[in-house]
Amino acid sequence: MKVKALVTVLVVVFAMALMLGCAKAPQQELDAAKAALDAAKAAEADRYAPEMYNAAKDSLNAALAEIEKQNSKFALFRSFKSVKDLVAKATTAANEATEQAAVTKEKVRSEAEGLLAEVAPAVENVKKLMKKAPRGKEGKAALEAIGSELAAVEASLAEANTAMTNGDFLTARDKAQANLQKLASLAEELQQAISKKYGR
């Protein structure tokens, strides 16, 4: 009976060792990490949160390397615990990159939207000043010139709006900023002409 018991214990121990040795890579977690990275990419995290996105990508690469490192070992000696840690790190970083990208993108979007909203009143202001500006012989040419420049601003503004519609908020913000600068210089020029005429 003792012999039988000993054999049974050995068989069980060997079977358990085999089972443990045949541990598999955490495929589900790995797929989730890849999906999180894809989501980060789709959220333009590589543009709006590049550092976090790069960290996620590197963690995933490290996890894939660790899987192959473990797979290179004899089945009994494999352990995927570090892989799980790296995959978890990659998933967390990817999710954070997505969140950060969304926050940054929203910030840029709202800035661009705010600036674009300022452009229309600034255009109106220039048009109003043009009506007040000297219109006689001495003002005609200058007003025509300012009209041409205003047309240039309006063309650029249309491009800014297109960029905004296409979700390219950085370009929209840059363009809106440039338009406002140009409009400010036109308004200043007109103010000077008006002040000169009316002595104010």
Binding site: A152, V153, S156
Partner: peptide, 29 residues
């Protein structure tokens, strides 16, 4: 400003000015 120049040329010049301001914005970031 003082030269009698075609309005389209003037508009092109103004667009150039706006683009250079936009370029500066991209440079800053």
């Amino acid at each position: 400003k003082d030269m009698p120049i075609d309005q389209l040329v003037r508009q092109k010049f103004a667009l150039g000015e706006i683009f250079i301001m936009e370029s500066e914005e991209a440079f800053k970031r």
